[in-house]
């Protein structure tokens, strides 16, 4: 059998990789890809704690489904923002979107 620690370490690694993507990528779409990796790491944690805790309460699986819905909403609005920004500024590189900087 697999101990709980393996799942937690896998989720921590995936979260750190997603964090690196959010902090280091230049393209706004790639930053959203990093956010998706982080959300998936959270979901692994939720399902693992459901399986290794009280199975009959189902709280972990319900939380995972809510996270799915929030991730879908986040991606839809985020990508619409990116497309809108691309139409106005003709770029999606995060560093070049410095209208509020002086």
């Amino acid at each position: 059998m697999i101990p709980l620690s393996w799942y937690l370490i896998l989720a921590a690694g995936l979260f750190s990789i997603g964090l690196f993507g959010v902090l280091a990528r230049r393209n706004a779409v790639a930053i959203l890809l990093g956010v998706e990796l982080m959300l998936n790491a959270i979901n692994i944690n939720l399902v693992a704690f459901w399986r290794y805790g009280e199975v009959s309460t189902m709280a972990g699986q319900v939380f995972t489904i809510i996270v799915f819905a929030v991730a879908a909403a986040e991606v839809a609005v985020g990508l619409a923002l990116v497309i809108s920004v691309y139409r106005r500024r003709n770029t999606v590189v995060a560093e070049e979107l410095d209208l509020l900087k002086w």
Partner: peptide, 12 residues
């Protein structure tokens, strides 16, 4: 990657 990518790598 942007020019501060090492900071992001350190953070992660």
């Amino acid at each position: 990657l942007n020019k501060n990518w090492w900071g992001g790598a350190l953070m992660s």
